[in-house]
Amino acid sequence: MQKVFGYPRSLTPKRTHYCPGCTHGIIHRLIAEAIDDLGIQEQTVGIAPVGCAVLAYEYFDVDFQEAAHGRAPAVATGIKRVHPEAIVFSYQGDGDLASIGTAEIIHAAARGENITVIFINNTVYGMTGGQMAPTTLPGQKTTTSPYGRDITKVGYPIRVCEMLATLDGPAYIERVSVHDPKHIIKAGRAIRKAFEMQIAGKGFSLVEVLSTCPTNWGLTPVKALERLKEEMIPYYPLGVFRSTEEVAKE
């Protein structure tokens, strides 16, 4: 009998600290499955962010570095330049990547640095208690936008995929979601594709994963997934924004 489903080898048995209903766990699993499928566990180095995934290194059974807030693409650059044969990925949230780390992500992308970035967008700072993120939607209430994000005062959310896709450096940029099984499977494929691009030496790849934060959104996990689908996807459309090669149809 063939085993078709099991615990990914690239995850440690450690229980995650994430809140019930949080989608970080799903995304961790998708990354681990991609690493397993591609047989790159022994050569992969991850970079953990500052954010809810700050302890990501506890959950992946691969070498890891913990970066300062927003600096993961620079750290990834350093690692990749020392070990060009290693598969290097950073795992970053929206505050980390799209606010304090905008310089680092833009320039890593512009350099075409041969690394993979998994970007988790849940429109809120989870770790520090629900403050406004660069991706917080117009009108969305957070602890630092208590009357709703007022675009006339604080401006507009940043669409990271669209912005980075204007650069010539990136090889692959896709936005995916994990609000239902169908989309989770699609997200898994995108993550795998991003790693494949790196293995092939094509350059910078980034997958933005639309994600939920039931705790800071004040919603049940199910309602949070609904919000993702109904409010986030219209603002952050899914799809491939840049690919230097035809994406193989599966």
């Binding site: 229980r15 600290h17 994430y18 809140c19 019930p20 809810c52 700050v54 302890l55 989870g126 770790m127 520090t128 208690g129 629900g130 705790t215 800071n216």
Partner: peptide, 13 residues
Amino acid sequence: TQPGLEMADLPAL
């Protein structure tokens, strides 16, 4: 929060 993370600044329920 998750056991062991009591003093961590993580909203991990």
